[in-house]
């Protein structure tokens, strides 16, 4: 790509789409077909009558590639809006993780102590296991998992990032004659 010697950056992109069959396949197919990275992707309906879904995709690339990703997303027919939260100003990024730790004796005590420090909640417990629930940004969850690994980390399930801009401005669709 010409003149694209720029630095790689990460981008958190929010996409408001029609909640219809195949829309997620279009978005994912666009990324795989054009060779873009997907670091994480989340999707769920977000409005009252479940006609709109919000996709949050974390990707990376040079500035030119990220601009291309946004333009390509924006031209998909069922896409209402594309917003690059990384550029939109201060924003919150959160991820939810369920983390299963298996062990006994001191390991259990240590696991609970670390969970407390990370504000992870115990949502399931047996005599040889815990399931912790925690929210935070990806780094926090990575750090928690790294600490749990020697203690008995058995399984991790993560949602991928969801994100929203701070303050009163809101990402909504243009008024439509629905």
């Amino acid at each position: 790509m010409a003149d694209d010697s720029g630095q790689f950056r990460s981008a958190t992109i929010a996409v408001l789409v029609e909640n219809e069959a195949g829309v997620l396949a279009r978005v994912i197919g666009l990324f795989s077909g054009r060779g873009y990275n997907i670091e994480s992707l989340t999707v769920a309906p977000v409005d009252e009558d479940r006609r709109l879904s919000r996709i949050t995709v974390v990707t990376s690339g040079t500035e030119m590639v990220i601009e291309q990703i946004k333009a390509q997303l924006d031209r998909l027919v069922p896409v209402h809006k594309v917003s690059d939260l990384s550029l939109a100003g201060p924003h919150l990024v959160r991820e939810l993780a369920l983390i299963k730790v298996v062990g006994s004796g001191d390991h259990r005590v240590e696991a609970l102590r670390l969970a407390d420090a990370f504000r992870a909640r115990v949502v399931d417990a047996t005599t040889e296991s815990f399931v912790f629930e925690m929210t935070g940004n990806a780094e926090k969850i990575d750090a928690f998992c790294a600490l749990m690994r020697p203690i008995g980390l058995a399984e991790v399930s993560r949602t991928g990032a969801v994100a929203i801009v701070r303050g009163s401005s809101a990402l909504t669709v243009q008024s439509h004659n629905g």
Partner: peptide, 24 residues
């Protein structure tokens, strides 16, 4: 990298994704 090296480029296109795709 050797395309129109001295040109200021104006690009008119109906598809925003065509702009700055190959050439800035």
């Amino acid at each position: 990298s050797h395309f129109a090296p001295t040109a200021k480029k104006i690009h008119a296109d109906i598809d925003p994704s065509s702009i700055n795709k190959n050439v800035k």
